[in-house]
Design a protein around this nucleic acid. Structure first.
Lengths: 207, 207
DNA sequence: GAATTTTCACCTTTTATTCGCCTACAATGC
DNA sequence: GCATTGTAGGCGAATAAAAGGTGAAAATTC
């Protein structure tokens, strides 16, 4: 009574959907998720999975599917801490992911730095060559000073807040260097630059 | 006996209302909150949710609804510390950061997805044009199937795990497309490809 | 008497079910 | 070796029921 490949995909999709939305998908939503064009196929899968005791349902009731206790038991792995994620290893290293022992844990606290952290959403492509894109979220540590070459959010002449690399220049000047060949560095008097924060991390979310 | 989409919205609204006000909403307040014009609809929802054991109530008594134990249990998850960071606004928008008075909060749970998440460290530059760099950490959702164009970690012929965009090709073939002009796509039979996860997020840490 | 819940009859949209028929593949009997 | 059978997976359309909705009137409690 084990799952077939397709049935496993079904269960994966289903449990992810419920986890994310808090309610059961309709047959049509399932069909879209599994790229099926007929509801009959979804129905067949449901029947098969119910027979195998992976799903429960109410007859003819909308969105009444639920994971059967059997599935829940077989699949409840480390629900430990929402902030800790198993760090399995490295890709392109020629080994299947499962094979890599789980010894490391990725903890979000590592990204957040001390207490003085804030976030911004990036607009524009001034740092694109450093692979910081429009729409990315960045975490910053609130500091007033930065070292040469660090990426900072700086306020120039009290008006523009920009993300740039910072360099000190002779004559008490400051150069704010974009990472975009199409853009020119900003060189201004140190008096007119106010550093707002130093880049700690870049976060990018997909879909 | 799972919740439907609308019932979930009902429960969300109801529990938020109680949380904020400390008392139960009247049917009319519920109707306004869910943009319903008839109290009959509210009543129907209440009956359905009572039957499903998500709500309790006293017959004909005003504002006597309460969350049933079942709901409370299912929804008291990881209230530990979501690790929230203030999201202040956007840069390069021509305004100083402080000026943006935004109440938004960046929550790491938003990145971690459902419970089925794991992390990998990226090696190599095969996705560099998508701005995923050597050394970046990526979060993945464990799925067995992916849609065309999504970025996945795939195991090819049981040996290489790689991060690529996936596309289906005629003849039951799969094309794994790098984002790097110097590299060629991998085209193999669908049988020889095993998807390990779908990209949820990219994290990059500085210094 | 005001606020609130319950009930009525009726409507629309969403959804699950069922039917017949198709392909691929692996196992079985001859 | 070859036909036969069984099983998993799939398609599209028709159908009926559940879920969601309306407005107004009645009933109940405070």
């Amino acid at each position: 009574m084990a799952l077939t490949k397709r049935q496993k995909e079904f269960m994966d999709f289903f449990s992810n959907f419920v986890e994310e939305n808090g309610y059961c998908p309709s047959y049509e939503e399932i069909a879209r998720g599994l790229e099926l064009s007929s509801l009959a196929t979804v129905h067949k899968h449901v029947c098969a999975l119910e027979a195998k005791n992976y799903l429960r349902r109410g007859f003819n009731q909308s969105r009444s599917l639920e994971l059967a206790p059997r599935y829940v038991q077989e699949n409840r792995r480390g629900r430990s801490h929402p902030l800790e994620i198993p760090l399995l290893g490295r890709i392109a290293a020629g080994a299947p992911v499962e094979a890599v022992e789980q010894r490391d844990v990725l903890n979000f606290a590592d990204f957040a730095g001390s207490g003085n952290t804030f976030a911004l959403e990036v607009r524009g492509n001034s740092m694109i060559e450093d692979h910081i894109c429009d729409g990315d979220l960045i975490l910053l540590e609130r500091v007033a000073q930065a070292h040469d070459g660090e990426i900072v959010v700086a306020l120039v002449a009290g008006s523009d807040a920009t993300l740039k690399r910072i360099y000190r220049e002779p004559g008490d000047m400051i150069r704010l260097q974009p990472a975009n060949a199409a853009m020119r560095p900003i060189v201004v008097s140190a008096r007119d630059v106010q550093i707002q924060g130093r880049l700690l991390a870049v976060l990018r979310k997909y879909k």
